[in-house]
Design a protein around this nucleic acid. Structure first.
Lengths: 153, 153
DNA sequence: CTTGAAAAATGGAGGGT
DNA sequence: ACCCTCCATTTTTCAAG
């Protein structure tokens, strides 16, 4: 699969906002019949343009109302320490996202916690036992103004 | 809807990772028949535990391979300036996420750009024309090690 | 891309524990 | 209150044109 035309882009946009639409509905939106739309979507899936389909779960409803961005500086910067850090961090289910970043810190984590007490416990007991960590700096989210989960095309 | 039992949590977990599973498949995973599973999922949707279903689009495939976390400090901190900033920022389609945060900066944006040149253009021309912004600080993502998009329960 | 038809999933009725 | 089996309807999926 090489190039996407405008209809493919439109389909990606629509599915990126709501994947529960029927092929029929999608077809109506792009002025085609269901079959070609079905084929296009399958092609977008096979080509890796659509990675997967997920349900978005409301973290607040599950009493995980606190979002924290946790900056992390490693003790050392060789490859094995970095790899060790990532595998350690992957096991922590409070960590939803992990990025290797430029700047003063090495990694940025997005963390979901129930409350401050829970976050404190996370930092002291869970991060505290990850040996590759040098120091951390937490930035607390006061309000999530926008999260589209996808590129806006 | 008040309490979730273990089966509901399991269903949320499964759907949060892959929402393309059939009710039958889900039923097998939680050792129930399709009907009660179907009813539970509908209850989870109606109760707001499942916010929506989306397709995850591969940004790199669409030539948006650069992720930047952009910290923003406002000029002033009254409510109307904050509101003005958020509405201005919402219009920028490079901005995927926007958080009101604690600390040295007021907002944290997650930005998708095609490349450095595009990001430079975004900062100078798009952020540059948002009057409420005082200063910015960009942190570039070198590697996205993990992104589960959902709470890990 | 269209039509059209087989296969499968959804979503509900009715009954049982 | 919760679950099950069964069935009509809708949707998906895949031919052939």
């Amino acid at each position: 699969m090489n190039e996407l035309d405008e209809i493919d882009i439109k389909l990606l946009k629509l599915l990126g906002e709501d994947s529960n639409v029927t092929t029929k509905e999608l077809a109506g939106r792009v002025n085609l019949s269901p079959s070609p739309v079905f084929e296009r979507v399958k092609r977008l899936e096979a080509g890796g343009y659509i990675k997967k389909y997920i349900a978005l779960i409301d973290a607040e409803k599950l009493d995980y109302g606190l979002i924290v961005f946790c900056n992390i500086r490693l003790k050392q910067h060789d490859k094995s320490i970095g790899h060790e850090f990532v595998t350690d961090i992957m096991r922590l289910n409070e960590v939803v996202e992990c990025y290797n970043i430029s700047g003063d810190y090495d990694f940025l984590l997005k963390v979901y916690a129930r409350n401050m007490k829970h976050y404190q416990d996370f930092v002291f007991n869970k991060l505290g036992s990850v040996k590759s960590i040098g120091s951390t700096h937490s930035t607390f989210v006061m309000c999530e103004n926008k999260n589209s989960y996808n590129i806006n095309i």
